[in-house]
Amino acid sequence: MNLLLFLLTLTLCLPLYAAWLKEDIWKTMLAFASLATKTSILILVVSVLRDDWMIGIVGVLMLSVGNAALMLLAHVIKRLEML
């Protein structure tokens, strides 16, 4: 289980590095989208590990509503490129 946590943290660092490379804004957005999913899954794994359902609910809420902001931001940035 600890090895799983370690591997999940390792994969968490990959999109962070991709965001650091700062090329296209869309690649940064992709890294952000991937990071948002990965953090909520990590929170869920930790909540199962500790048997603490208060954090589990946070993970589920981040999964179910967190992507809405990304879609809004994507549309704002798209409008920016059109003008």
């Binding site: 962070l16 965001a19 804004i25 940064t28 957005m29 890294a31 952000f32 990071l35 948002a36 953090t39 929170i43 946070v58 981040m62 967190g66 902001a69 990304l70 931001l73």
Partner: peptide, 11 residues
Amino acid sequence: VMRGVLGTIAA
């Protein structure tokens, strides 16, 4: 976008 990344890591 990086502020968003910071927010997720902080959460």
